[in-house]
Simulated assay, not measured.
Amino acid sequence: MLIPDVPVDGEIRLGQFIKLASLVETGGVAKELIAAGRVSVNGEVDTRRGRHLHAGDEVTVADEAGSLQVGARVASHPADGDDDYFDEATADDDFDPDKWRNL
């Protein structure tokens, strides 16, 4: 199974990451799966929803039978010295900063 990289800024908690990586639909489902021992970090079951993850950690979620269902790897954003994200494809070329300056 191909495990995709999911970029995060700095550290993230286990419950937040499996939601961010779309391994589960809601935080409630994440909490239940973690408590049930169906979530593994780097191949070891972890029942701590607040566990801090770091770049390179691999998180997998198993189905009820215990076989691997989905997974994702924590990846850091590339360090380009700029924390602002700019997506040129969705940028508004007609943006007028003076129009929005005093709102």
Rank of each mutant, 00 (worst) to 15 (best):
Q16V: 11
Q16P: 08
Q16R: 10
F17K: 06
F17N: 07
F17G: 06
I18H: 06
K19P: 04
K19T: 15
K19G: 10
K19V: 15
L20F: 03
L20W: 04
L20P: 06
L20V: 08
A21W: 00
S22C: 14
S22I: 11
S22M: 11
L23K: 04
V24Y: 06
E25I: 14
E25A: 15
E25Y: 09
E25P: 10
T26H: 14
T26I: 12
G28A: 02
G28H: 10
G28K: 06
G28W: 08
G28Q: 09
V29Q: 15
V29C: 10
A30E: 09
A30K: 04
K31Y: 13
K31W: 13
K31E: 15
K31C: 13
L33K: 09
I34V: 12
I34D: 07
A35P: 05
A35E: 15
A35H: 12
A36H: 02
A36P: 04
A36S: 12
G37T: 01
G37W: 01
G37S: 05
G37H: 03
R38K: 14
V39I: 03
V39L: 00
S40Q: 10
S40L: 07
S40D: 09
V41S: 02
N42C: 08
N42W: 05
N42T: 07
G43D: 06
G43P: 05
E44F: 05
E44V: 14
E44K: 13
V45C: 05
V45Q: 08
V45L: 01
V45W: 10
D46Q: 00
D46Y: 00
D46S: 07
D46V: 11
T47I: 10
T47Q: 12
R48W: 00
R48I: 04
R48E: 11
R49S: 13
G50N: 15
G50Y: 11
R51F: 10
R51L: 13
R51W: 03
H52A: 14
L53D: 06
L53F: 09
L53N: 08
L53H: 10
H54L: 08
H54F: 03
H54C: 03
A55Q: 10
G56K: 02
G56V: 02
G56W: 03
G56R: 02
G56E: 02
D57P: 11
D57W: 08
D57A: 07
E58H: 07
V59A: 06
